[in-house]
Amino acid sequence: MNLIKAIFLSSVGRKYIMALTGAAMSAFVFVHLLGNLQIFLGADALNKYAVLLHSNFAILWGYRLGLGTIALVHIVVALSLWLENRAARPVKYVVNKQPYTDFASKMMVCGGVAIFFFVIWHIVDLTCGLTRPDVVNQTAMLGDKQVADVYHIVIKGIGHPVAGICYLIATCCLALHLWHGLESIFQSLGLRNKTYALYIKVVTKAAVLFLFAGMCLIPLVCMLGILK
């Protein structure tokens, strides 16, 4: 019981939870991006990758439920910390400038909530195909098999200007969240000291810039009609 309390109810314990769930979701996001960048290898490459992802029912649902749980824990713990943090300063400063605190760290909760709504729409729209069935129900031939034409689903689905702009905005929110978050993981888990601090900063910020560029590129090429 005390162990549960030490991890799930203490201030420091909940930082580990934020860091571990954040790290797991970040790992997913990077793999997701690398997978999606195969769109530049052409229709067959992306469609084949999609078949691979759906090939094992147990793995697919294991990963979906696992990631869903991780996201839920991240959000619930984030909100509990946020409520306590607000309560810890009941009277605000008249000159309320939060000195030396960067924009990214001030935006963690707002940006996180924006990402949450985006992800819900992203899943309902493209994974479940509830909002635009005509886009999602396209098929193509891969060798002699008929498969979902993910290549054209993406180009049409994300290439729609309104959808594309939503992807760009969500990418900004995610990049900002990780601008603070990726570096933060090391601090929260106690894996940072004066010797490593600069390396951690450079590597994590570079990773976020790569993610940002990659995630902006796909909606842009779809919207501008560069990929057809």
Partner: peptide
């Protein structure tokens, strides 16, 4: 007290 969010202020 509140919880640290690594702002380094």
């Amino acid at each position: 007290f509140g919880n640290c969010t690594n702002t380094y202020a």
